[in-house]
Design a protein around this nucleic acid. Structure first.
Length: 371
DNA sequence: GCGGCTTCACATAATTTTAT
DNA sequence: ATAAAATTATGTGAAGCCGC
């Protein structure tokens, strides 16, 4: 029997129970189980403060099963102000993004959240501004972005602050304390690569720095280059940094000419981008040189997950994007749940900076045959 | 004074009804 | 005609009631 309140609301008039819609609601479950809607809610959510006996609980669950009831997320969100959905922004043509997404997805499933993919290339949607609208529309609870390493877009950061949207960047804002982010310790990755090469008896490496677009050197590249210079200094070697535009085969030919002319034992090469490997290996092959046999080669990122599929497999520092994604999602969701039901108060100035705004990830060594 | 439950109020935004 | 209030969808949770 419906309670008096529900009767007054006219929800069970007419005995036959004709409702405005034929969707199953918590009201139907409550009626079937002989309880109020609040109890149905409590059973579903384990609401503290509302006790439910074992029999009642079973009756409710039974009714839910029988009726095939599912919570109306729209209505729930109306009350709680929470959508249990986060937006992930990045370029879907970028394999790194997909790797990060893999981890994000895992974390979200585990924590009961959903992912809304916001392709960055859909400029039609108004760029990233559309993300903020999604938040205002209560469709999402927070935002993750995969940025190019070291990106520091103050305008966007300001916009997220203005909108008071929980936000976390993967790879962006490494030096911006105010913006929570997940970053990579690129310096450490270079040092670790050095250690590995050294442990295998390699000589001090040249640094081949590939780049694709003109403009200011990115933070990540600066970190790596400086780490290389620092390491060479430490080991008393002469640093040799060769910058090569991606796809510039002639520059690669020139490099090999120079390097072979220089002599001095087996060449050792440290490469910033895996994507630069192809040309390097192709030209080496033309000269009958094989990585691991005639020269040492190591990449500082494996961003396309290709290294281990090459022959010989190329040693590299693997950037753990999936794990970074997982961590990012976990931390963003922790932000959301740390202040229950108070999205209007985020972020409160005092909380502005608890520790752990940044998470530093270390690249993992992939010990390929090339060193 | 507590477990187990109900009641009541309220969340949103468009639409409809009632009051001025 | 215009403004104000109620109603609609449905779920949540603080407050309150009942019986032991």
């Amino acid at each position: 029997m419906g309670s008096s309140m529900d009767s007054l609301m006219g929800r069970d008039k007419g005995g036959g129970g004709l409702k405005p819609t034929n969707r199953v609601t918590s009201f139907d479950v409550a009626r079937r189980a002989g309880v109020s809607r609040s109890v149905v809610s409590a059973v579903l959510n384990g609401t503290p403060g509302i006790g439910v006996s074992a029999e009642t609980r079973e009756a409710v669950l039974e009714a839910i099963r029988e009726l095939g009831y599912e919570v109306n997320a729209q209505a729930r969100g109306m009350r709680t102000g929470v959508s249990h959905c986060i937006a992930v922004c990045g370029s879907t043509t970028n394999p790194l993004f997909l790797q990060a997404l893999e981890g994000i997805q895992q974390a979200c499933v585990k924590l009961g959240y959903h992912v809304l993919i916001y392709g960055e290339e859909t400029k039609a949607a108004g760029g990233r501004g559309g993300l903020l609208n999604l938040y205002r529309q209560r469709r999402i609870d927070g935002i993750l972005t995969l940025d190019s390493a070291g990106r520091d877009d103050e305008e966007w950061a300001e916009a997220t602050r203005e909108a008071a949207v929980p936000y976390l960047s993967i790879e962006g804002y490494p030096e911006q304390e105010a913006v929570p982010s997940v970053n990579v310790d690129y310096r450490a990755s270079v040092l670790e690569a050095f250690d590995w090469m050294k442990s295998r008896g390699a000589s001090l490496p040249d640094y081949l720095l590939f780049w694709s677009a003109p403009g200011e050197e990115e933070w990540a590249e600066r970190e790596r280059r400086e780490a290389y210079l620092g390491a060479m200094k430490e080991f008393g070697g002469e640093p040799i940094v060769v910058t090569i535009r991606e796809g510039d085969e002639a520059a690669i030919v020139r490099y090999w000419d120079d390097r072979l002319q220089r002599g001095g034992g087996m060449p050792a090469l440290l490469v910033n981008w895996s994507t630069g490997l192809h040309g390097l290996l192709r030209e080496a092959d033309r000269r009958g040189l094989r990585a691991g046999r005639d020269f040492r080669l190591m990449a500082l990122d494996n961003t396309l997950r290709i290294n281990r599929q090459l022959l010989p497999s190329i040693a590299c520092m693997e950037i753990p994007y999936a794990e970074m994604g997982r961590n990012a999602a976990e931390r963003l969701i922790a932000m959301l749940t740390s202040r229950p039901g108070s999205r209007a108060e985020w972020p409160d100035p005092a909380a502005g900076e608890r520790s752990g705004v940044k998470a530093l990830f270390r690249a993992e060594l992939f010990a390929g045959e090339s060193v």
